[in-house]
Design a protein around this nucleic acid. Sequence first.
DNA 1: TCGGTACGTGAATGAAGATTCACGAGATGG
DNA 2: CCATCTCGTGAATCTTCATTCACGTACCGA
Lengths: 208, 208
Amino acid sequence: MYKKLDDTSLTRLLEAGIDEFAEHGLDKTVMSSIANRAGMSVGVIYKYFEDKDAFFLACVDYSLELLQQTMESVILNENDLRKCLKDLVADLISAAGEHRNYYRMYHEITSGSCGKYAAELAAKIESISAKVYTELLGKAEAQGRIAIKGDPRLFAFFFDNLLMMLQFSFSCDYYYERMKIYCGEENAADPQAVGEAFVDFMGTALGL
Amino acid sequence: MYKKLDDTSLTRLLEAGIDEFAEHGLDKTVMSSIANRAGMSVGVIYKYFEDKDAFFLACVDYSLELLQQTMESVILNENDLRKCLKDLVADLISAAGEHRNYYRMYHEITSGSCGKYAAELAAKIESISAKVYTELLGKAEAQGRIAIKGDPRLFAFFFDNLLMMLQFSFSCDYYYERMKIYCGEENAADPQAVGEAFVDFMGTALGL
DNA sequence: TCGGTACGTGAATGAAGATTCACGAGATGG
DNA sequence: CCATCTCGTGAATCTTCATTCACGTACCGA
């Protein structure tokens, strides 16, 4: 039963890969399960990709593209800093819930077994978020609204750390459990509430 | 060449396990390399532990014990809140550099391939840090020194998120690369400077 | 319609590594 | 000093995949 791959099939394959990798991690994922899930045969993966690692990296790229789209759709249409921040946080938190697996992929690459790609991947991902935060902080400074003590890069770093953890907390098992322990089930079940608390927290830190 | 395991040998085995797991991750670590590194034979691991997973979990427990010792040695002898915070941060950051591998183990368990242990492990680890932060926040409130808006658990959550990321940044490859990108090489090479910036940041957020 | 090519298929192959187990070296105790 | 038991050893076994490749179907151009 031969079936030619149309142009959407590659996408289907990548998505199957993302689902499997997000669920089991790079090493525990079995190539033939990915093919199964995508409704095609293992061999085809090797027609398009060098090996498992290369395929994994392609899946990472694909999920990053989607994350990037999410981020870019957020920031550009607001003037009020606080509202801007609020929207950013709300959107990212709901994206984390909706596209759980893309964030799991993101988290997966931070793990030890991707060590050899650490530098390369960090550079690739940073280019996404740095853009957003530069813009955000730029606005704030232009408005003379914020009081950052010291190196603004460190400030951006802390901010992104927090935001990243929030996203992981709503997409990865371990961090979700951790959040429940810290904040209680009620809060963990109410992403928007956590987002608002975070905006308040950042508001204070920014001296808003 | 038979050699009886004295009481320190188990420790040696666990430490070898931690080193290997921290370096390669759970799945990529090879059991016989661990035995090699510990100077004994593979078989012995299976005399003491059910299987690879069980051994890994034992290694996690052991590294958590050591992390716990670090945390407990910090907080107890200060009255001034800001100094207390400062010491905590400085100590945790240098611990992250010195006991890199314990933190890598900690990070390893957050990854997808440990999914089935997520809840169990989160509970175990939370019991360590919650104690410290409860104490810290308790002091602050007693002194009427802080102005926490909203649920204090969320505040503790954000605080720990930040601190955890700082520790990962000084111990795990990916996060270290990321920190360099955000903060520049100079800052990444100067843990104490980053720690101080963080204390300032938290100081503002706390309304100190 | 026919010959030839392109490409998906999935069973077969090979490697890697977790786990086992028959062995024998030390310990113990009489 | 011997008999017996304990327990570490590491080569052999057994599984689990990643990767390959001989095959056959669909497509294309003539």
